[in-house]
């Protein structure tokens, strides 16, 4: 496993004039009306905006789960619109880790099996798969809960399993849609310090949130309204540590490698 590089000036995400229009019956819903966004490697972006402003739509496009009606999207220098279904699946598997608001762990499936899932699709087998899943669970501090199924875990623990699943294939980009939306304050700060560690190790994070205190952890804040970017503010330099992250905090991820 090689950690994602930290060299500045590299664009992980380049979105140019992305438009997304849904047609509901005969009515056209303009979810995105020309969004342009470039994200540098190692950045941590918080996307804010009122409900219905197009945040999730943008996230789906960034995560290669959806394609824009018009405009371009380059992920890691690859024009996503040229990829077929199988290649898109591979990109999602190897370059992107998803964290959802509602965790989306598979029920009746242990934490370990959940974290192994992306590795299965990556073609990693047997002992190696188990080792890497254990490593990811260790990184989120859940090595003592590997045999628990989601219903036996708290919300914060479930979200940490989800984060472990997102980082299992060691992707450079973490996409999180309101990752703390369903969590209490203690779990929220757990997940945010986890994100801080991942970002300080060089992973790019794009995170949707409503909460200002969550936004404060990001290096850059992008605000959407009615499918357009209305604000783009930098809170901390890309190359430095995340604003609220204690630099000396122990990194079990780093320790495990």
């Amino acid at each position: 496993m090689t950690g994602p590089g930290r060299a500045g000036g590299e664009w992980v995400i380049v979105v140019h004039e992305a438009v997304k229009t849904y047609s509901v019956g005969s009515v056209a819903v303009h979810a995105l009306r020309g969004v342009s966004l470039a994200v540098e490697r190692g950045d941590w972006i918080a996307i804010m905006g009122a409900s219905g402003s197009g945040k999730t739509t943008l996230m789906n496009i960034l995560g290669c789960l959806d394609i824009p009606t018009s405009g371009h999207y380059m992920l890691d220098g690859i024009d996503v619109s040229t990829l077929d279904d199988r290649e898109l699946a591979e990109v999602r598997n190897s370059k992107i880790g998803f964290v959802f608001q509602s965790f989306n762990l598979l029920a009746r499936t242990t934490a370990l099996q959940n974290v192994e899932l992306p590795l299965i699709y990556a073609g990693v087998k047997g002992r190696e798969r188990r080792r890497r899943a254990m490593l990811a669970l260790d990184a989120v501090g859940l090595s003592d809960r590997v045999e628990h199924v989601p219903s036996e875990l708290s919300g914060g623990q479930q979200q940490r399993v989800a984060v472990a699943r997102a980082i299992a294939t060691d992707p450079a980009l973490i996409l999180a849609d309101e990752p703390t939306g369903n969590l209490d304050t203690v779990s929220t700060s757990d997940v945010l310090s986890l994100f801080g560690r991942l970002n300080s190790e060089g992973r790019t994070i794009v995170m949707i949130t409503h909460e200002p205190e969550v936004t404060d952890h990001a290096k850059r804040v992008v605000r959407l309204r009615d499918g357009m970017v209305i604000e783009d503010r930098r809170q901390a330099p890309v190359s430095g540590p995340p604003p609220l992250y204690a630099a000396g905090a122990p990194s079990s991820v780093a320790a495990a490698r």
Partner: peptide, 16 residues
């Protein structure tokens, strides 16, 4: 359906 969505998001192909 939701499980299928999750699987696809984390890298399952149509064939999978």
């Amino acid at each position: 359906t939701r499980e299928i969505g999750v699987r696809k998001a984390i890298g399952a192909t149509k064939v999978d």
